[in-house]
Amino acid sequence: MTDYLQVSTVLATRQDAAYLARSATHSRLAAAAQVIGPVLSMTWHEGTLVETEEWQLVLRTRVERFDQLTAYIVDRHPEPDPEVVGVPIVPGTRSYLDWLDRKTSVVPG
């Protein structure tokens, strides 16, 4: 089991993705965030394959912060039921993971 996750979601606009990246990092729910895009997405919606352009938001955090980060994203996401997924970070450099620990601490480190 890993102690660290890369968490992602997608948003319709660069502005929405940047806002969530900035605010989640500022709140120390994530140590770092990247906004990637636009990306082309294919999704099944009500029996039809839908093609959209979206912005991917990727955040790194600790497993113990995942539920808080997920609630934060869902609460601020413009979609009613956004995709939020976490992928384990295995492995990672010890110095980076130590930095991630410090940046996602409640007390600044």
Rank of each mutant, 00 (worst) to 15 (best):
T2Y: 02
D3F: 01
D3A: 14
Y4W: 10
L5S: 06
L5G: 01
Q6S: 13
V7Y: 02
V7P: 00
V7A: 07
S8P: 00
S8I: 04
S8R: 08
T9Y: 06
T9G: 00
T9S: 15
V10H: 07
A12G: 13
A12S: 12
A12P: 09
T13S: 14
T13A: 07
T13V: 14
R14H: 13
R14A: 14
Q15R: 15
Q15G: 11
Q15W: 02
A17N: 03
A17L: 10
A18H: 10
A18F: 09
A18T: 12
Y19S: 04
Y19W: 13
Y19P: 04
Y19F: 15
Y19D: 10
L20M: 05
L20D: 00
A21L: 12
S23V: 07
S23H: 12
A24W: 03
T25R: 06
H26C: 06
H26I: 03
R28S: 04
R28L: 01
L29D: 05
L29K: 02
A30M: 01
A31W: 03
A31Y: 01
A31H: 02
A32S: 14
A32W: 10
A33R: 00
Q34E: 12
V35Y: 08
I36R: 01
I36Y: 01
G37T: 05
G37P: 05
G37K: 06
P38N: 09
P38G: 09
P38T: 11
V39N: 02
S41L: 12
S41A: 15
M42A: 12
T43I: 07
T43Q: 10
W44S: 09
H45F: 14
